[in-house]
Design a protein around this nucleic acid. Structure first.
Lengths: 373, 373
DNA sequence: CTGTTAGCGCCTTCAG
DNA sequence: CTGAAGGCGCTAACAG
């Protein structure tokens, strides 16, 4: 009949009631209370009722920390996002939603988008005993991560890379995006289509990504001229929350280059909202109208595009879907470490047609052609 | 000499080393190891060295969960943000930075911006034993929160309300923002200045907020005409991550109204990035040039403004400062529950002049005046 | 300066 | 169907 003592009871007046309290009051064993609360079939309905009643009465809440301690499982998953991802908080919202749905909570950490701070945050998460990790890494220390993954820690990556040999990852299909963006312009009669992309060590699949553009052009029998391809250079000074590539200023520069070309492109495929915004800003300076003079389509569109004037056509990156999938993946791995896990998911975006693209004007088209010949 | 047994040692091969392991190997008490690790002055250098050495050798990491369990303190603070706050992730980044700096971690939860989901998320956080809470609430269930605060849980709010009687809060000074935005236009010679604001149960201090506009106008001897004041109505259907008031479409509507007025305002003070963006979109439809025909200034500016064309002048909401202050506040309360806590901080923004505002053209100004007389 | 001891709240195994 | 007991890793009070 002897049960655990609670010598410090009076010291902590705000203490929540525990299983022990209920057990004591009911003159029953703690394990009985526990099983009742877990609705175990091994407990009689009568006992369960009594336990539930008391639990309700005293507002019993399981102690998350004690539970985590005893089970050696926190039901928390850590998420590491680079600062630049601030623009993609839908991803996080989706992660959280899916995770909550499956009984997990999410610890978020924003990194400075550099190796050191990323590594530090990851370690912090691990110290906090997260059950799994979602990492949006741009400067990955693969050696470290490889070790972690091999040590059994469930990690899912979201990266612009196409191949991560040792861990599951999710990525956005940039090749596909460039293809349908380009095809969209072609379908509107554009022939002189420029291409603006980022160029960085981060994006090693860049050569593959541009294939979407090349292929579409070739298939349509259109010639490709290198001078219509512009690679954004990383900008040295950026505000917090921006990355060095996809920022307004770089769009401005791209515009300055492209709008000075002769003949001028009639359509532009550009990566990302901010670059598109910069292009629009640049067009104004050149007194170029969009879409009357130039059509613009973004191959990696977020929420900004629909707030620009004109609203920009683009291939929408499926942030929400990404988030849900990320959460699903880690949790699947956590809960069944041996289950076969598809290594890489390549998510496709969807073309949303807005006001920045339109059919090439006959006049213009003819004029351009005459110039060529 | 007898120390704790580890019967399950072999069952968990990936187990991290514990203080007990070190104590055993050193033939010393656990508490000694503990004090050594805490660098207590009560331990001899020699012992400390031995302990540190072993800890290093075995890669000892304190077990966060066990620690939290024993101390009944998690060093985690929960943050509840409404979906709309997705645009303000700088706030979160700042919270995290400050919190980490002081040895805390941050649990984030995104709510659907309604009472129910907010309440649920708060409770979830509490179940997870956070030490304190930061709540960006727009539909606060004050009665619930009052209870929580009175029960001793450290909570800091960030709200558009000016008064929360029972808890510390941080808010953005909208009256001040409207004042300097209006004054900016006045200083550029504008006389016919329209005012676009939100109108909702959320924003009960609205009447106070508009005073910034009224006062400036009166001080400048300018007349105020109600028809130049436009209140945004909540939009029924919004995308995730948007709130019902400050969205592009509502800016469009505001523009449709204002740009049809006769005489047309030469300057507009508008709340928020999205409304400003909508105003610009609307201006295009009316073939109105910004800033040549109409100047626009936002009284609650975020990061979007500088990506619009033209880049919009605005009073920048100090997101980063807010975040740091929020974290500082909760932690101060957590660590010294009795310390006097300033109840409300009202943060002021800073005017950033960009391209959407300019001096009224003489011609135009004269014409408007003639019309009036 | 160091050791002993008794929990924190919950879970799990083993024994009825 | 129920009970008893031990342990998770760390902390803190007390005793030298």
């Amino acid at each position: 009949m002897k049960t655990a003592q609670r010598p410090y009871l009076q010291k902590t007046p705000l203490r929540r009631v525990t299983q022990v309290d209920i057990a004591n009051e009911l003159g029953v064993a703690v394990s009985t209370v526990q099983r009742a609360l877990a609705n175990s079939p091994r407990i009689s309905q009568k006992t369960k009722r009594k336990v539930f009643h008391l639990a309700e009465k005293y507002g019993y809440k399981p102690n998350f920390i004690a539970n985590a301690f005893a089970r050696r499982k926190t039901n928390m998953i850590g998420t590491i996002l680079g600062k630049y991802a601030i623009n993609h908080m839908e991803v996080f919202a989706a992660i959280e939603q899916e995770a909550n749905h499956r009984g997990y909570n999410v610890l978020l950490s924003i990194t400075d988008f550099d190796e050191q701070s990323e590594h530090q945050k990851v370690m912090q998460m691990i110290d906090h005993s997260v059950d799994g990790l979602i990492i949006a890494s741009a400067n990955p220390r693969w050696s470290t991560y490889k070790e972690l993954v091999e040590s059994g820690l469930p990690i899912v990556f979201v990266t612009p890379f196409v191949d991560i040999p040792f861990a599951p990852a999710i990525t956005y299909d940039r090749e596909y995006a460039n293809r349908i963006a380009t095809e969209h312009l072609i379908s509107l009669g554009h022939k002189l289509i420029a291409f603006v992309d980022t160029d960085s060590i981060c994006f090693t699949d860049q050569s593959r990504s541009i294939r979407g553009y090349f292929d579409s052009m070739e298939q349509a029998g259109l010639s490709i001229d290198e001078k219509y391809i512009y690679y954004v250079k990383p900008s040295p000074n950026v505000l917090p929350g921006e990355n060095r590539l996809i920022i307004y200023e770089n769009g401005l520069k791209a515009g300055e280059y492209l709008f000075s070309l002769n003949p001028r492109p009639t359509g532009i495929v550009v990566e990302g909202d901010a670059l598109a915004a910069g292009l629009i800003g640049s067009a104004r300076k050149f007194n170029i109208r969009i879409p009357e003079d130039v059509s613009i389509v973004s191959s990696k569109a977020g929420r900004l595009l629909s707030q620009l004037t004109p609203r920009v056509t683009g291939v929408k990156e499926p942030h929400f879907q990404m988030g849900r999938l990320l959460a699903k993946r880690v949790i699947d791995i956590i809960e069944n470490a041996d289950s076969p896990v598809e290594q890489m998911s390549i998510l496709k975006g969807e073309l949303i047609i807005r006001e920045s693209t339109r059919r090439v004007e006959q006049r213009r088209e003819k004029r351009e052609e005459r110039k060529k010949n």
